[in-house]
Every structure is written in C-alpha cells, then in structure tokens.
Amino acid sequence: MSHSPDLSIQMLSRTSLLAPVRCMLVSFAERIGFDETASGHIALAVDEALANVIRHGYSGRDDCRVWLHFWELHEPAGLRIVVEDYARQVDPELIRGRDLSDIRPGGLGVHLIRSTMDSVRFEKRREGGMRLTLEKLLGAAPVQSAA
C-alpha cells in the first residue's frame, strides 16, 4: 500500500465488537459519499469477513488480534478496506462462495462479500495469517441479487 491508511483499528476477535465496527464503517462510508444502501453493503461485507476470521481463522477464540485499515480512494473515488490477522492460513484459491442452489444453513459469507464489493482479494501474509483487501467504488453498478 503506497500511503498510510486514513483510519486504522485494532480489535480483539470478539463477536461483541462486530456491531461497533459496523457503525463506524457506515459512518466512514457515508462521509466519503456512499449512500445508505451502499454503506450498508460495505458494512455487511466487512462484518462477514470479520465473522469468518473469528469463527474459522481463530476457531472462536476471543483473545486474538484483527486489524482493519481504511483508505479513501481518489480517481476513481471509493473506499479500500484491508483486514489482517494472524489466523490459520488458507489457500486463497479455496476461498469460494458456495452454490446458492444448495439451500442449507451457513457458507454464505464469502458470497455476500463478493456480491457487495467491487474488488475482493484474499492472500496469505508473509508474517503469518491472512489479508483481505476489499474495494468499493462510488458510482459503481448497484448490487444485484444473485442470478
């Protein structure tokens, strides 16, 4: 990343912290210019990402660290969010949303992230853990329900 984030948060891997992060994120996204719907989708994507880190990466432990970094993008305008952890590493190629025609509980998180953001990149961090980079551009096509 070429310059420092506009905003960074370090949080514990506690599900009780998901709600305050969503609130902050909606506020930040709306300040940049996203409308209520898009801000809600950005918050949903990050919420799902954090839930995956806590539930799968850290196996539900609540004393681990997660870092979130936010950049306001210019030309094109938008928002970049990076989520980093020291959780169990997973081959990024294996992180896929499931077949939606298979109606069963669970497994929707990655699909929701990919559906609501314009760019999604999972990668292993050299120092351990995973990095997820999300981007949402202002004025991009609205989210469509799965076809």
Binding site: T37, G40, L100, I103, L108, H111, S145, A146
Partner: peptide, 13 residues
Amino acid sequence: PRVRSILEISRLD
C-alpha cells in the same frame, strides 16, 4: 430493507 436485501443477494427471497 437491509434484511430483505441480504435475502435477495443470497437468492433466498
């Protein structure tokens, strides 16, 4: 609206 939206995106609506 937000709950309806997540059901739509998930094709569960």
